[in-house]
Amino acid sequence: MSTKMSYIEAIREAHIQEMQRDESVLLMGIDVGPLGGLFGATTGIFDKFGSERVLEFPISETGYIGSGIGLAIEGFRPIIEIQMADFVTVALDQVMTVMSKEYAVTGGANRVPAVLRLPFGANLTGQGYMGGAGPAHSQSHEAWFCHSPGLVVVMPSNPADALGLLKAAVRSDDPVVYMEQKGMYRTSIGDVPDGDHVVEIGQAAVAREGSDITVVAMGAMVQVALQLADNLALEGISVEVVDPRTLVPLDEETILVSVRKTGRLVITHEAHRTGGFGAEIAAVVAEKAHGSLQAPVKRCAARDVAIPAGDAALRVLPGLGSLTTTVREVLAF
């Protein structure tokens, strides 16, 4: 049995299920109380659980992310909502220096079972208002967190994974950076399994099977890659779409199995290309499946320039057009 939900409803539902299951789970953030968060992801949670489970803070990301770390060390399991992923930049020391390293630096004495929810990205889904909210409200910073050992980094691309990965993140004994694609909040709607649906951390999904080329797609680009696969199928081209779902720890095996099968790889994400997580995946494939490649690996990512406001964002963000071009280049090699 399953229930149809939007991506944002799935996130809200995961909060409710986990907060009911375990009273050490807290929600922390700015405007997460009666308002239900900037985007409404936590609507109704304050009414249900009250002010000792839903902790509101002044606009002080450093202060409240760090408070979440202290609460986690003391045995709570805080879900820390950042209004937009961009705003975590003012508190990176808390994430990079404290949250990620506390376990290693204390020789395992202190655990930080916290979830850091980062609503990132623009709307690339093809539905509703398209584009971004400007250079400081549309970014995708996941690569930074993948480069800070100690963190787990997940990025769901549909409502079922949004729910299942958030529940897994809450239960993890590690700090988990939960990258939620805010452009998909109300445009991505899908069946979410009823009951205790937990998506195991570290497991990629083959979103669509194919044999001619592998597209490893993340976040909103998964939907775009599936659209591309539909389109190319009409020409008799068979595209396999792999969604890593977890970036750290990366399920290398699922990607390598796919590349060994198809011999061709395109990686696509909404983050900027230089230093993006696509480079890491390309490196893994170069190290471990070099002999299987029949063509150079290519990346389709945001261009290396600030993301413009409004529709102009689409000029620099990846989309169906740029992904199609990239895939055709690799197929033609």
Binding site: E52, G66, S67, I69, G70, D93, Q94, V98
Partner: peptide, 15 residues
């Protein structure tokens, strides 16, 4: 950078 952690521990005592 360490002080926010102390805020969290104090909050845990309060809760």
């Amino acid at each position: 950078g360490q002080v926010p952690t102390a805020v969290g521990v104090a909050l845990s005592y309060q809760l």
